[in-house]
């Protein structure tokens, strides 16, 4: 089976790669582009560890074929810290000890950022339901939810300042 040539923008940069036609976008990011921040926890869209943004929408990259990325704008965890500084969500995850093993963390951060981008002031319930697609087995979610809410508050303050 011949591979397809794919052009996309990843974390702002143009990329080109070859992929087998049935390859998932997750495998392409990890194996063709060397971006291993997105993880495969299930391969069926049930754990969210592979979460990325495609054209500003949150998706599971394990449920997208690499050829579907043609011409798309993709954001991964590797693009979240900007200009040498962590995103407030990343900082709050560290301050609140919202990670233990850290495997689900990239997906949770990408999903949480998608939430705050469209809802800067989510309630705890809204946050919990938005993040229900991101399994974490270490934390019981308590500190994750606190970190997201705290980051939201900080971002709101920065915005109004």
């Amino acid at each position: 089976m011949s591979k397809v040539h794919i052009r996309a923008r990843v974390n702002g940069d143009p990329v080109e790669f070859l992929a087998e036609q049935g390859m998932t976008l997750l495998d392409a990011l990890r194996d063709e582009l060397g971006l291993t921040g997105a993880k495969e926890g299930c391969g069926s869209g049930d754990c969210g560890a592979c979460s990325i943004m495609v054209d500003e929408r949150l998706v599971c990259s394990c449920l997208m074929l690499a050829p579907e990325a043609e011409g798309r704008r993709i954001e991964t965890i590797e693009g979240m810290a900007r200009d040498g500084g962590l995103h407030p969500l990343q900082r709050k995850f560290l301050e609140h000890a919202a990670l233990q093993c850290g495997f689900c963390t990239p997906g949770l951060l990408v999903a949480a950022k998608a939430l705050l981008d469209q809802n800067p002031d989510p309630t705890e319930t809204e946050t919990r339901f938005w993040l229900a697609g991101n399994l974490c087995r270490c934390t019981g979610y308590d500190k994750v939810i606190r970190a997201v809410m705290d980051a939201a508050a900080e971002l709101r303050q920065a915005h109004s300042a």
Binding site: K39, I77, M80, L86, Q90, F93, L94, G102
Partner: peptide, 22 residues
């Protein structure tokens, strides 16, 4: 309660887990 020393690696996607080696 200091920030964990391996924290930045884990919030930026740098930390290498079993499947990340090549």
């Amino acid at each position: 309660r200091p920030v964990r020393p391996d924290g930045v690696d884990k919030v930026t996607g740098r930390a290498a887990f079993g499947a990340d080696y090549r």
